[in-house]
Amino acid sequence: MKKLSVTLSLLTAAIFFMAANLPMGEGYAIGDKVDDFNLQGIDGEWAMLSESMGEDGAIIVFTCNTCPFAKMYEDRLIELHNMYAEQGFPVIAINPNDPDVQPGDSFDKMKERADAKGFTFQYLFDDGQEVYPKFAATNTPQVFLIDSDMKLRYKGAIDDNPQDADAVKTNYVSAAIAALKDGKDPETTTTKAIGCGIKAKKNG
């Protein structure tokens, strides 16, 4: 009996340890199938990834209302969605920030921002912050491009110039989608970009 309880408590400890380490993990690697998720959008509807994605995949982007870098990409996200939704890759935006830490990223503020900017894409709220750690997302904005099998094919920046859309030399998302359409692997599968750190819930 004693042995069993020790084993059990060790097991519990191990599980807790794993859970605690989840946000620090590597997240999905390129080629990994991403788990389905179900998040509420600003229209009040719950959206499953598997149902919201297009025929060929989706441009999942972690973004928010408050980060200056995220704001500079709002118009470009609308453009991406308007261009690629019909081609099978809609933009699915997710706000991962904890509104207790960043009040400007509350669900109500998301609605206001989407109205003001005229978002044409779904804008979902990672309430409880269970989705972004699986992607090991760190910044806003940060893109995760999946294909029709929900496999991760590109992650990182949208393009190479946050401050000036007209001066962009490489649009990583467009390039990756073009490659997928040709049945090829994207030439660049991972990039980094300056952005705002995701605001995780503070303990205690």
């Binding site: 760190t138 910044n139 920046a157 000036d164 980094k192 952005g195 705002c196």
Partner: peptide, 18 residues
């Protein structure tokens, strides 16, 4: 502007978040 060209030169562990 092209952060991707230099982030790793600061430190490969840096995600780019400040």
């Amino acid at each position: 502007p092209n952060a991707n060209a230099w982030i790793d030169k600061v430190d490969p562990r840096w995600s780019g978040a400040i």
